[in-house]
Simulated scan of single mutants.
Amino acid sequence: MTRHDALLVDLDGTVYAGPDAIPGAVEALEAARKRGLTVSYVTNNASRAPGEVSEHLARLGLTLTEQDVVTSAQAGAAVLARQVESGATVLVVGTEALADEIRGVGLVPVRTADQDPVAVVQGHSPDTGWRDLAEAGLVLGRESIWVACNVDPTLPSDRGLLPGNGSMVAALRSASRREPQVAGKPAAPLLRQAVERVGATTPLVIGDRLDTDIAGGHAIEAETLLVLTGVSTPADVLTAIADQRPTYLAADLAALENLDAARVDGDQSWHVDVDGTTLHLSATDNAPDDATDRPAQLAALRALCHAWWSTAATGDPTVRPGDRTAEAVVTALALPRAGSG
């Protein structure tokens, strides 16, 4: 951890799922803070104000202030403020928390196209409906500016994956045949705002999604840690494209205690041969006898990723286990199998 001066931590699927903390997350982040690391919470979810988010995190047991929370609503407002004149009207598709951020940068939030907005800003709200999208569609038909706070297609919850802001953005994209500017991850504005706020020079971006958190880290040229507590799966990691590949891979935030052990690299417990798009995985004499051991499984996954990512091969990789231990690991991780179709 001495290589990093700040942790930029995602929330949904990384720190909590719904109202409850993911097991071990609070303890790991508090330990990191006590070791002197700056911890910032950087969320693509634009539905809540920073104060509301910080109160939620404090109830879970985290030590923080409102300034430690950076939301995509703040980033979206900042993106708009650089492009339109102060006092301009902006149609808000989202919560009052997003409207407040628009007011905070000197713009006027409105809810209907009849109020002559010069731009649309769109963030997640569980109450967004057809009428809201219809008003936004009318404004977009005038070639107005369109900023999406984020484009996550799903939102992790304690009940499972729910439609995210990106699904609502997709509806407007289809209707307007336009593309929004994106403020949140994987675009750089949100993470850059977080970096500037704490004055970090070597941040570590942490999250549960390859397509937002890890890609966002690549966008600001920062190292990244993917935790498997939310959206992305082991199979997703293995098949990830270059700009979505994490520096570190772990089951959860407990990896912060020994980050080097989570680096995506070769492992003495596992041997991987690459033959085209087939990865032959076999256990070495150093492999644990118990293939149900989660650390052993993730060590195998890191070894597979390292071997595949080190090649120039194209296509979708599959794994062929070479022994019973490897067979059990491939099954537990639900990895794509060679010859499985």
Rank of each mutant, 00 (worst) to 15 (best):
A170R: 09
P180G: 06
D132N: 14
V90H: 05
R35W: 10
A334W: 11
R48H: 12
L91R: 05
Y41A: 03
V329Y: 01
D116M: 13
D316W: 12
L204W: 00
V90M: 14
A219S: 08
P295E: 07
G13L: 04
P321C: 06
D236P: 07
P23K: 13
A215M: 05
V169R: 00
E101C: 11
L304E: 00
I241D: 15
E85F: 11
A78H: 08
Q268V: 14
P189Y: 03
C305E: 02
V195R: 00
L210K: 00
A81L: 08
D100N: 13
A251G: 15
N44P: 04
A334M: 14
G137W: 09
G184C: 04
A338L: 09
V79E: 01
R320Q: 13
S86Y: 12
P109T: 14
Q122W: 06
R48I: 04
N44F: 02
R59H: 12
T2N: 12
G276L: 04
W270K: 04
G104W: 15
T277H: 02
P163D: 03
G76D: 05
S40G: 11
R245G: 01
L304V: 03
T14S: 08
T38I: 10
D132R: 06
G217P: 00
L335T: 00
G207C: 09
E27G: 10
R197W: 09
D12F: 02
R192M: 06
K34I: 13
R197F: 09
D275I: 06
A81G: 09
L225S: 02
N150C: 08
G341T: 15
T128W: 05
R177I: 07
G199V: 07
W309T: 03
E30R: 12
Q244I: 06
Y41H: 07
D20M: 13
P336N: 07
A97P: 06
D152S: 08
K185L: 04
W130S: 12
A148H: 03
P203D: 05
E196R: 10
A200V: 11
V84D: 03
S125V: 14
D260Y: 09
R337F: 06
R111V: 10
